[in-house]
Each structure stands twice: as structure tokens, then as C-alpha cells.
């Protein structure tokens, strides 16, 4: 059984999968792991090739769009130690097409689909739970600390929704930011973040939202458990309606 290594980057992962699918007669029999550079590490290192990585994703998208979407969501999770499963999943996806997502009895498929689902779920959740604050200069800023690295797809979602606004997304944990202004979307990292001043009417609008949030619940039907299971407490930090609780 052959063992392959890659450099630990996303491009490295995808390009080594592409390489293995090309060269190995039975990709489901080999393993792939991140190179640790320890003395007794065994395995053949595959060099990283960004164009190869891109073409793999592109071909998968043509062949099995649904599986490509799963691959994309899986990559958002930045999970380590599942490289072999991903290799087997992609190999199976080329073999069976989009039907592969039904092959949940296969351990690799199940692992990859599970992680991808979790990342996808958080992305969907964040589309609702993200909160923008209006700044003094008229721009809007939303801070978040998601478990998965979802800032890219999230920014695309808001670029088609809040088109007329100038806004920022900021992932506090990863120090990554997205900016939308005049029809262009940019990504970058922020080394030092200072909280900008809020616009004058911001606190007033927040108070309105807090009041609405309180009164819209039917008092006879209080159900904090259901509320928490739908909206886990880890997201409350940036929720305007949950401040001061």
C-alpha cells in the first residue's frame, strides 16, 4: 500500500489528489497525509501545483457538480487528518458521479459528507445570524467567530443581497476580512483591529430590534430549550438581541 505526503496547504491537498488519481491504478488502496518532516516519516512527497488543483476542482464540477459542492464545503472546515478519506471520496465521485452522496455506507463518503454538511449548515446559519452595525462614515461592519472558514461564500451571499451598501465582514478568530464597495469584493487579513465608532442612530435602531425581539415571542409559549437548540449560545456574542442577557 503506497503512502503519499503533501505540504499541508489546500492547493497541495487537491493537487496531490489529482496526481494520485492520474498515476495510481487503484487510488482507493493508497493513503495521503500531511508531511510532518519527522526523521522516520515514510512516504512519497507530491509537490504542490496550483493549476493542477484548480483543474481537478473544475473537472469534478463538470462531472459531478453536487460532489464538487461537497468538496468545497469540506475544504471550508479546514479539517486535518482526513486526507485519505477525501482522496477516496473524490475517486469514488469520478467513478459514480453525483450518486456518490448516497453511498453513505462507505466510511470515506460518510466522513466527508458529514464534515461538509456541518460546514454548510454553519454557512446557512450565519447568513441569518450575522449582524451589521452602521459606522460613523456610513459603512456597515459585521463581526463573527464561526467554527469554519466561511467568510468567502458568506461575502458572496451578501454581495448579491446588500449591493447598494458599503460593508465589511470580519472573522475575529482568523483575522480575515471581506470588503464590499461599489460593486467590488475584496478579501484580506487584518493584523490590528480597532473598533470604529458607530453612527449616531445605530443604538436607536438596535433598541428597536431588541424591543421587537422581546415582544414577538408569545409569553404563554416560552421555550428557552428550543431557542437554544436552534440558535446555539456560541453565536450570541454578536447578536444585538442577545446583548445584556
Amino acid at each position: 500500500m503506497n503512502r503519499y505526503l503533501y505540504d499541508g496547504t489546500a492547493d497541495g491537498l487537491l493537487s496531490s489528489i489529482a496526481w494520485i488519481l492520474e498515476e495510481e491504478p487503484d487510488p482507493e488502496k493508497v493513503t495521503l497525509a500531511k508531511r510532518m518532516d519527522t526523521l522516520f516519516e515514510e512516504g512519497f512527497t507530491i509537490s504542490t501545483d496550483a493549476t493542477l488543483a484548480e483543474s481537478l476542482f473544475f473537472r469534478l464540477k463538470q462531472h459531478a457538480p453536487d460532489a464538487a459542492h461537497t468538496l468545497y464545503s469540506f475544504m471550508l472546515a479546514e479539517k486535518e487528518g482526513m486526507e485519505t478519506s477525501l482522496l477516496h471520496y473524490v475517486s469514488l465521485a469520478f467513478k459514480h458521479g453525483d450518486k456518490v452522496k448516497g453511498y453513505l455506507t462507505h466510511p470515506a463518503v460518510r466522513d466527508i459528507v458529514n464534515v461538509a454538511q456541518k460546514a454548510g449548515r454553519e454557512l446557512h446559519r450565519m447568513k441569518g445570524l450575522l449582524r451589521f452595525e452602521k459606522l460613523q462614515d456610513g459603512a456597515y461592519l459585521a463581526k463573527m467567530e464561526p467554527d469554519y472558514n466561511i467568510i468567502h461564500p458568506l461575502a458572496y451571499h451578501f454581495s448579491s443581497r446588500l449591493r447598494a451598501q458599503h460593508w465589511f465582514l470580519y472573522d475575529v478568530k482568523r483575522r480575515m476580512a471581506a470588503r464590499w464597495n461599489n460593486g467590488t469584493l475584496q478579501f484580506g487579513t487584518i493584523e490590528q483591529f480597532t473598533t470604529p465608532a458607530l453612527s449616531e442612530d445605530e443604538k436607536k435602531v438596535q433598541a428597536l430590534w431588541q424591543a421587537f425581539f422581546k415582544t414577538i415571542a408569545i409569553p404563554d409559549r416560552k421555550n428557552p430549550r428550543l431557542q437554544k437548540s436552534n440558535m446555539p449560545m456560541k453565536y450570541w456574542k454578536y447578536l444585538v438581541e442577545k446583548q445584556g442577557e
Binding site: F213, I216, A217
Partner: peptide, 10 residues
């Protein structure tokens, strides 16, 4: 898209 959940869980 759900944006929040009220105290009654809705």
C-alpha cells in the same frame, strides 16, 4: 433564512 429565534423558540 431564519435570522433569530424568539423566546418561544419560534
Amino acid at each position: 433564512i431564519c435570522h433569530s429565534w424568539a423566546d418561544d423558540g419560534r
